[in-house]
Design a protein around this nucleic acid. Structure first.
Length: 277
DNA sequence: CTAGCTTCCTGATAGC
DNA sequence: TGCTATCAGGAAGCTA
Protein backbone atom coordinates (compact mmCIF):
# COMPACT_ATOMS: atom_id res chain seq x y z
CA UNK A 1 0.00 0.00 0.00
CA UNK A 2 2.71 2.43 0.68
CA UNK A 3 3.92 3.29 -2.78
CA UNK A 4 6.55 5.81 -3.74
CA UNK A 5 4.67 8.94 -2.59
CA UNK A 6 3.83 7.44 0.79
CA UNK A 7 7.37 6.21 1.34
CA UNK A 8 8.57 9.70 0.46
CA UNK A 9 6.16 11.11 3.05
CA UNK A 10 7.52 8.77 5.71
CA UNK A 11 11.05 9.79 4.76
CA UNK A 12 10.32 13.51 5.01
CA UNK A 13 8.63 13.19 8.38
CA UNK A 14 11.06 10.76 9.98
CA UNK A 15 14.34 12.18 8.65
CA UNK A 16 14.50 15.41 10.69
CA UNK A 17 13.46 13.53 13.82
CA UNK A 18 16.27 10.99 13.76
CA UNK A 19 19.24 12.44 11.87
CA UNK A 20 22.10 13.12 14.24
CA UNK A 21 20.82 10.86 16.99
CA UNK A 22 22.46 7.68 18.22
CA UNK A 23 20.78 4.31 18.58
CA UNK A 24 21.38 3.35 22.21
CA UNK A 25 19.60 0.06 21.96
CA UNK A 26 17.95 -1.95 19.19
CA UNK A 27 15.17 -4.29 20.23
CA UNK A 28 13.98 -6.86 17.71
CA UNK A 29 10.60 -8.11 18.91
CA UNK A 30 9.98 -10.28 15.87
CA UNK A 31 12.96 -11.62 13.99
CA UNK A 32 10.81 -12.44 10.98
CA UNK A 33 11.05 -8.91 9.65
CA UNK A 34 14.85 -8.93 9.63
CA UNK A 35 15.98 -10.14 6.22
CA UNK A 36 19.72 -9.71 6.79
CA UNK A 37 21.74 -10.56 8.80
CA UNK A 38 20.36 -12.80 11.58
CA UNK A 39 18.21 -10.84 14.03
CA UNK A 40 20.77 -10.97 16.85
CA UNK A 41 23.63 -9.61 14.77
CA UNK A 42 21.28 -7.09 13.26
CA UNK A 43 20.53 -5.63 16.68
CA UNK A 44 24.17 -5.76 17.75
CA UNK A 45 25.40 -3.95 14.69
CA UNK A 46 22.76 -1.22 14.96
CA UNK A 47 23.53 -0.42 18.59
CA UNK A 48 25.75 2.62 18.99
CA UNK A 49 25.26 3.81 15.41
CA UNK A 50 24.43 7.41 14.59
CA UNK A 51 21.96 8.27 11.82
CA UNK A 52 23.52 10.61 9.29
CA UNK A 53 20.86 10.61 6.57
CA UNK A 54 17.67 9.09 5.21
CA UNK A 55 17.12 8.42 1.53
CA UNK A 56 14.48 6.77 -0.59
CA UNK A 57 14.98 4.61 -3.67
CA UNK A 58 11.79 3.27 -5.26
CA UNK A 59 9.78 2.01 -2.31
CA UNK A 60 12.88 1.39 -0.19
CA UNK A 61 13.98 3.61 2.68
CA UNK A 62 17.73 3.82 3.22
CA UNK A 63 19.02 4.94 6.60
CA UNK A 64 22.56 6.23 6.30
CA UNK A 65 24.75 5.64 9.31
CA UNK A 66 27.78 7.67 10.24
CA UNK A 67 30.10 4.69 9.84
CA UNK A 68 29.05 4.23 6.20
CA UNK A 69 26.91 1.22 7.06
CA UNK A 70 23.29 1.39 5.92
CA UNK A 71 19.91 0.16 7.07
CA UNK A 72 17.44 -0.68 4.31
CA UNK A 73 13.69 -0.97 4.86
CA UNK A 74 10.85 -2.00 2.59
CA UNK A 75 7.38 -1.42 4.07
CA UNK A 76 5.63 -3.75 1.62
CA UNK A 77 1.91 -3.84 2.40
CA UNK A 78 1.33 -2.64 5.92
CA UNK A 79 4.64 -1.43 7.33
CA UNK A 80 4.55 1.72 9.44
CA UNK A 81 7.44 3.70 10.83
CA UNK A 82 6.87 5.98 13.81
CA UNK A 83 9.04 8.28 15.88
CA UNK A 84 7.43 8.35 19.30
CA UNK A 85 8.14 9.66 22.77
CA UNK A 86 9.47 7.00 25.16
CA UNK A 87 6.14 6.45 26.86
CA UNK A 88 3.94 6.44 23.77
CA UNK A 89 1.42 3.55 23.90
CA UNK A 90 2.70 0.48 22.12
CA UNK A 91 0.85 -0.54 18.98
CA UNK A 92 -0.04 -4.17 18.41
CA UNK A 93 2.33 -5.71 15.84
CA UNK A 94 5.35 -3.64 16.85
CA UNK A 95 8.35 -5.65 15.62
CA UNK A 96 11.36 -3.37 16.07
CA UNK A 97 12.11 -0.55 18.51
CA UNK A 98 15.21 1.61 18.29
CA UNK A 99 15.88 3.61 21.45
CA UNK A 100 17.46 6.90 20.44
CA UNK A 101 19.67 9.14 22.59
CA UNK A 102 17.35 12.11 22.03
CA UNK A 103 14.75 10.36 24.19
CA UNK A 104 12.54 9.19 21.33
CA UNK A 105 11.99 5.78 19.82
CA UNK A 106 11.91 4.74 16.22
CA UNK A 107 9.30 1.98 16.01
CA UNK A 108 8.41 -0.39 13.21
CA UNK A 109 4.85 -1.70 13.16
CA UNK A 110 3.58 -4.14 10.55
CA UNK A 111 0.29 -6.03 10.81
CA UNK A 112 1.02 -8.49 8.04
CA UNK A 113 4.78 -8.73 8.60
CA UNK A 114 5.64 -8.55 4.92
CA UNK A 115 8.03 -5.64 5.44
CA UNK A 116 11.77 -6.29 5.70
CA UNK A 117 14.93 -4.72 7.12
CA UNK A 118 18.49 -5.29 5.88
CA UNK A 119 21.61 -4.09 7.66
CA UNK A 120 24.32 -3.73 5.06
CA UNK A 121 27.86 -2.95 6.20
CA UNK A 122 30.01 -0.44 4.36
CA UNK A 123 32.04 -3.23 2.76
CA UNK A 124 29.04 -5.43 1.99
CA UNK A 125 27.09 -5.40 -1.26
CA UNK A 126 23.66 -3.80 -1.32
CA UNK A 127 22.66 -6.42 -3.89
CA UNK A 128 21.51 -8.50 -0.89
CA UNK A 129 18.47 -6.24 -0.85
CA UNK A 130 17.76 -6.36 -4.58
CA UNK A 131 17.78 -2.58 -4.69
CA UNK A 132 20.55 -2.50 -7.27
CA UNK A 133 18.23 -4.00 -9.88
CA UNK A 134 15.59 -1.28 -9.64
CA UNK A 135 14.61 0.71 -12.69
CA UNK A 136 14.51 4.48 -13.04
CA UNK A 137 13.14 6.80 -10.43
CA UNK A 138 9.95 8.36 -11.83
CA UNK A 139 11.55 11.81 -11.66
CA UNK A 140 14.67 10.78 -13.56
CA UNK A 141 15.00 12.83 -16.73
CA UNK A 142 15.92 9.62 -18.54
CA UNK A 143 12.33 8.49 -18.07
CA UNK A 144 11.11 9.34 -21.56
CA UNK A 145 8.66 7.82 -24.02
CA UNK A 146 11.68 6.29 -25.75
CA UNK A 147 12.87 4.66 -22.54
CA UNK A 148 9.45 3.16 -21.81
CA UNK A 149 9.12 1.95 -25.39
CA UNK A 150 12.55 0.36 -25.38
CA UNK A 151 11.77 -1.51 -22.16
CA UNK A 152 8.12 -2.41 -22.73
CA UNK A 153 6.84 -2.06 -26.28
CA UNK A 154 7.60 -5.70 -27.13
CA UNK A 155 5.90 -7.08 -24.02
CA UNK A 156 2.58 -8.79 -24.49
CA UNK A 157 1.51 -8.17 -20.93
CA UNK A 158 -1.08 -5.55 -19.98
CA UNK A 159 0.39 -2.11 -19.35
CA UNK A 160 -1.17 -2.12 -15.87
CA UNK A 161 0.98 -5.10 -14.90
CA UNK A 162 4.13 -3.63 -16.39
CA UNK A 163 3.73 -0.38 -14.49
CA UNK A 164 4.21 -2.51 -11.37
CA UNK A 165 7.54 -3.83 -12.64
CA UNK A 166 10.06 -2.24 -10.29
CA UNK A 167 12.87 -3.00 -12.73
CA UNK A 168 11.44 -0.58 -15.30
CA UNK A 169 10.18 2.33 -13.18
CA UNK A 170 10.62 2.03 -9.42
CA UNK A 171 7.88 2.99 -7.02
CA UNK A 172 4.52 2.42 -8.70
CA UNK A 173 2.00 0.06 -7.09
CA UNK A 174 -1.65 -0.71 -7.58
CA UNK A 175 -3.01 2.64 -6.47
CA UNK A 176 -0.91 4.84 -8.70
CA UNK A 177 -1.03 2.52 -11.70
CA UNK A 178 -4.81 2.99 -11.67
CA UNK A 179 -4.43 6.75 -11.32
CA UNK A 180 -1.78 7.00 -14.03
CA UNK A 181 -3.74 4.93 -16.55
CA UNK A 182 -6.89 6.92 -15.84
CA UNK A 183 -5.10 10.21 -16.43
CA UNK A 184 -3.55 8.81 -19.62
CA UNK A 185 -6.89 7.49 -20.86
CA UNK A 186 -5.44 4.02 -21.30
CA UNK A 187 -7.47 0.87 -20.62
CA UNK A 188 -5.57 -1.16 -18.00
CA UNK A 189 -5.60 -4.43 -19.94
CA UNK A 190 -4.12 -2.91 -23.08
CA UNK A 191 -1.14 -5.01 -24.15
CA UNK A 192 2.12 -3.09 -24.26
CA UNK A 193 2.50 -4.14 -27.90
CA UNK A 194 -0.70 -2.25 -28.69
CA UNK A 195 0.25 1.09 -27.15
CA UNK A 196 0.84 3.98 -29.53
CA UNK A 197 3.63 6.54 -29.51
CA UNK A 198 1.13 9.01 -28.09
CA UNK A 199 0.40 6.58 -25.24
CA UNK A 200 4.09 6.20 -24.35
CA UNK A 201 4.44 9.96 -24.51
CA UNK A 202 1.53 10.45 -22.13
CA UNK A 203 2.83 7.81 -19.73
CA UNK A 204 6.27 9.40 -19.57
CA UNK A 205 4.66 12.73 -18.74
CA UNK A 206 1.93 11.55 -16.34
CA UNK A 207 4.05 9.15 -14.27
CA UNK A 208 6.26 11.87 -12.70
CA UNK A 209 3.40 14.36 -12.68
CA UNK A 210 1.00 12.13 -10.76
CA UNK A 211 3.59 10.88 -8.27
CA UNK A 212 4.82 14.36 -7.46
CA UNK A 213 1.23 15.55 -7.07
CA UNK A 214 0.62 12.70 -4.63
CA UNK A 215 3.71 13.60 -2.62
CA UNK A 216 2.37 17.13 -2.36
CA UNK A 217 -1.13 15.98 -1.39
CA UNK A 218 0.29 13.69 1.28
CA UNK A 219 2.17 16.53 2.99
CA UNK A 220 1.55 16.78 6.72
CA UNK A 221 3.26 17.70 9.95
CA UNK A 222 5.04 15.20 12.18
CA UNK A 223 2.24 15.74 14.71
CA UNK A 224 -0.49 14.88 12.24
CA UNK A 225 1.48 11.84 11.13
CA UNK A 226 1.91 10.56 14.68
CA UNK A 227 -1.73 11.29 15.52
CA UNK A 228 -2.75 9.10 12.58
CA UNK A 229 -0.16 6.58 13.80
CA UNK A 230 1.46 6.60 10.39
CA UNK A 231 -1.56 4.94 8.85
CA UNK A 232 -3.19 8.02 7.46
CA UNK A 233 -0.26 9.16 5.39
CA UNK A 234 -2.25 7.98 2.46
CA UNK A 235 -4.66 10.77 1.79
CA UNK A 236 -7.32 9.08 -0.28
CA UNK A 237 -9.47 12.10 -1.24
CA UNK A 238 -7.26 13.24 -4.12
CA UNK A 239 -7.34 9.86 -5.87
CA UNK A 240 -9.56 9.96 -8.92
CA UNK A 241 -9.91 6.36 -10.01
CA UNK A 242 -8.43 3.86 -7.52
CA UNK A 243 -11.18 2.30 -5.41
CA UNK A 244 -13.87 4.29 -7.20
CA UNK A 245 -15.86 1.36 -8.54
CA UNK A 246 -19.52 2.31 -8.95
CA UNK A 247 -18.79 6.02 -8.65
CA UNK A 248 -19.03 8.59 -11.45
CA UNK A 249 -15.98 9.63 -13.46
CA UNK A 250 -15.11 13.26 -12.69
CA UNK A 251 -14.45 13.89 -16.38
CA UNK A 252 -17.36 12.25 -18.20
CA UNK A 253 -19.74 11.03 -15.51
CA UNK A 254 -19.62 7.38 -16.60
CA UNK A 255 -19.56 4.84 -13.78
CA UNK A 256 -16.13 3.38 -12.91
CA UNK A 257 -15.84 -0.34 -13.44
CA UNK A 258 -13.62 -2.90 -11.75
CA UNK A 259 -11.69 -5.70 -13.38
CA UNK A 260 -8.80 -7.92 -12.32
CA UNK A 261 -5.54 -7.47 -14.21
CA UNK A 262 -2.64 -9.73 -13.33
CA UNK A 263 -4.32 -10.61 -10.06
CA UNK A 264 -4.71 -6.93 -9.08
CA UNK A 265 -8.01 -5.11 -8.86
CA UNK A 266 -8.22 -2.25 -11.30
CA UNK A 267 -10.73 0.57 -11.53
CA UNK A 268 -11.19 2.35 -14.80
CA UNK A 269 -13.62 4.63 -16.61
CA UNK A 270 -15.21 2.67 -19.48
CA UNK A 271 -15.53 5.84 -21.57
CA UNK A 272 -12.25 7.66 -20.87
CA UNK A 273 -10.20 4.45 -20.93
CA UNK A 274 -11.43 2.61 -23.99
CA UNK A 275 -9.70 -0.59 -25.05
CA UNK A 276 -8.00 1.47 -27.71
CA UNK A 277 -6.90 -0.97 -30.40
C1' DC B 1 12.29 -16.59 -21.58
C1' DT B 2 7.79 -15.99 -19.82
C1' DA B 3 3.16 -17.01 -18.07
C1' DG B 4 0.73 -18.14 -14.27
C1' DC B 5 0.22 -19.66 -9.86
C1' DT B 6 1.35 -19.76 -4.73
C1' DT B 7 3.26 -17.96 -0.56
C1' DC B 8 3.69 -14.79 3.09
C1' DC B 9 0.11 -12.52 6.98
C1' DT B 10 -3.91 -10.25 9.53
C1' DG B 11 -8.00 -7.61 9.56
C1' DA B 12 -12.04 -5.76 7.35
C1' DT B 13 -15.98 -6.87 5.16
C1' DA B 14 -19.41 -9.69 2.59
C1' DG B 15 -22.55 -13.31 2.58
C1' DC B 16 -25.26 -16.83 4.71
C1' DT C 1 -25.55 -12.90 16.11
C1' DG C 2 -21.92 -15.60 14.66
C1' DC C 3 -19.68 -18.17 11.52
C1' DT C 4 -16.83 -18.81 7.21
C1' DA C 5 -15.07 -17.10 2.81
C1' DT C 6 -13.03 -13.60 0.34
C1' DC C 7 -10.28 -9.73 -0.49
C1' DA C 8 -6.55 -6.35 0.22
C1' DG C 9 -1.56 -6.32 -2.96
C1' DG C 10 4.22 -6.04 -2.87
C1' DA C 11 7.50 -9.11 -4.27
C1' DA C 12 9.73 -13.47 -4.44
C1' DG C 13 9.63 -18.30 -5.40
C1' DC C 14 8.04 -22.00 -7.92
C1' DT C 15 6.44 -24.93 -11.92
C1' DA C 16 5.50 -25.84 -16.63
Amino acid sequence: MPELPEVETVKRIVAPQIIGSVIQKAKVLNGKIIAYPAAEQFADRLSGQRFSGLDRRGKFLIFQLETGDRLFLHLRMTGQLLVTPKEFPSEKHTHLVLHLDNGTQLRYIDVRRFGRFWYIGKEESESITGIDKLGLEPFDEQLTAEYLKSKLSRKKKPIKEMLHDQFVVAGIGNIYSDEILYLCGIYPETKCTDLTNADWEKLSRIIPQELSLAIKENEMSAEEYLAGKGKKYRNMPFLKSYGHKGMPCPICGSIFERITVGGRSSCYCPKCQKASH
